[in-house]
């Protein structure tokens, strides 16, 4: 076993709380674990790789003619829409995987280790930003292949990408909350898909708002996803940061402000 004797319990330096530094280190280690898991099971990246490719192709060729006259004119409209939709869809996985993880034996070990209690949750949310980055890169790449040349230039595309990733991270707190409170992973999936459909299809992501009935326009205009999509369009197509950018950021902040404490509290109670 060990060549040196154990330090007796009574002689150890012990603390009853994890410091902020330790909480950060633990969260990064848990994020590292998340990345290892992605590397070990690359098949779980199917959704983030296939969806941007398929959706971009499908939506562009199906709706392009009807909505914008031709495919080329539709690209500046649809690429930001697809981008937002895909990346947010990806964030559902956070909740589903969190639920699966919490049901596994390894979670008992995390609970018995002297680590910051929040670390497994924070780590999972952190690791998933990698998925958002992959989905973002693929969507822009698909658009480029189909002939999309954003007028805003590369710099603004990068800003838009970071902006979308950050917003999705905020939205993933909603799904993380369902992940923590739900009984099974499939019920997390079920609830999340409904929320996701309401948020993304009842927005301006695919179709101009003015074609919708009045009562629906009211909801669509209030939906933070619409502002997110508009902000991304402004950034990549015109290189401008408008009021929608601010509203979307506010929306993201509000979501985090509501769901982060809810999730953390529910998580602490469950673990």
């Amino acid at each position: 076993m060990n060549d040196y004797p154990l330090t007796p319990g009574a002689q150890r330096a012990l603390k009853n709380h994890a410091s902020v530094g330790q909480s950060l280190r633990n969260s990064f280690t848990m994020a590292y674990r998340g990345l290892l898991k992605i590397r070990r099971t690359p098949e779980q990246l199917f959704d983030v790789t296939l969806q941007p490719i398929l959706f971009t192709l499908m939506f562009t060729y199906i709706f392009g003619g009807a909505i914008s006259g031709n495919v080329h004119n539709y690209l500046p409209v649809i690429i930001p829409g697809i981008l937002v939709q895909t990346v947010i869809t990806t964030s559902i996985v956070t909740g589903v995987q969190l639920r699966e993880d919490m049901d596994k034996g390894v979670f008992d070990r995390f609970k018995s280790l002297p680590i910051a209690r929040i670390a497994p949750l924070a780590g999972a949310l952190l690791a998933d930003t990698v998925r958002y980055a992959i989905a973002t890169a693929l969507t822009f790449a698909m658009g480029y292949l189909m002939g999309y040349r954003p007028h805003g230039g590369f710099g603004h595309v990068v800003i838009a990408a970071v902006f979308v990733i950050a917003s999705s991270w905020a939205i993933s707190w909603i799904f993380a909350f369902f992940g923590v409170i739900a009984r099974t992973a499939s019920s997390v999936q079920g609830i999340s898909v409904i929320v996701l459909f309401l948020l993304t299809f009842l927005s301006n992501a695919f179709v101009p708002v003015k074609t919708m009935p009045g009562w629906l326009q009211w909801f669509v205009n209030a939906n933070p996803i619409s502002h997110l999509v508009t902000a991304v369009r402004d950034l990549v197509n015109a290189g401008s940061i408008g009021g929608d950018f601010g509203i979307a950021l506010m929306g993201a902040a509000v979501i985090v402000a509501i769901f982060a404490p809810l999730t953390v509290r529910a998580y602490m109670r469950r673990t």
Partner: peptide, 16 residues
Amino acid sequence: QLIGVTGQYASVDETL
């Protein structure tokens, strides 16, 4: 900080 726990069911990460 004072204990090690080996549960009845292995608490290790299956995917790693």
